[in-house]
Write a protein that binds this DNA or RNA. Structure first.
Lengths: 110, 110
DNA sequence: ATAATAGTTAACCATTTGGTTTAATATTGG
DNA sequence: CCAATATTAAACCAAATGGTTAACTATTAT
């Protein structure tokens, strides 16, 4: 059995599969933010947001820093790059560079 | 509540969150393949693979064409591009182009 | 000291997910 | 016609997911 397993990609792509979590990341792209602020736009309880944040944190997409009773959340882009890199392997399928596709296939055969 | 919802991104990222499905896509990048062929490398029953294929198909990542009793599956790259485009919004966070970040923030303020 | 604020934890629930096995449906070959 | 092949469908199961409310912890303010 071929092993394409990557716990990182599992966690990152799964985390991105939820609209609330993508919205949180979009919000964090504007700058770090506390939990309550992140929760505000969502029609959802605070514990629910807390859970989403843990999912993002586990995936390495968000870092939390405790400052007094406030927790400051910030975007951690590394895993997003991993995801982008994975997808980039397929870019040749949509960007019309069929020469690159040919190169790729050729290299595979060797 | 801000609406960042995208059913497409939900489906695509969720689909990519499973290693078996990523492996299937990687296999399809080498060319179209029938279901049994796709199942072969995996230590998993055929119905399980069939389900994974439906997930991929629902996400628009795989197309199935029935040819006799064989079903030919092929890679459908469109949704991958959607996913890549979404992630690309965050590229400025890891590629060191902080000028682009400044531009982006500025445009947001307007 | 007490109350308010920020956030998490715990317990619970319904639904989804990812797998199984067994049965069914087409299609092809002898 | 009958058997084999390719695949899906159905029924089932355990675990994970995404949400809730209520209770708890820690910190700040009065």
């Amino acid at each position: 059995m071929v092993n394409y397993y990557s716990a990182t990609l599992d966690a990152v792509f799964s985390a991105l599969g939820d609209p609330t979590r993508r919205a949180i990341l979009a919000r964090l792209a504007h700058g770090a933010s506390r939990v309550t602020e992140l929760a505000a736009p969502h029609d959802m309880s605070l514990p629910a947001i807390s859970k989403h944040l843990r999912v993002l944190e586990t995936a390495g997409l968000v870092r939390k820093e405790k400052d007094g009773r406030v927790i400051r959340c910030s975007l951690e882009p590394g895993p997003l790059k991993d995801a982008a890199d994975w997808i980039a392997h397929y870019q040749r399928f949509w960007d019309g560079r069929l020469d690159a596709l040919a190169d790729y296939i050729e290299r595979l055969e060797e």
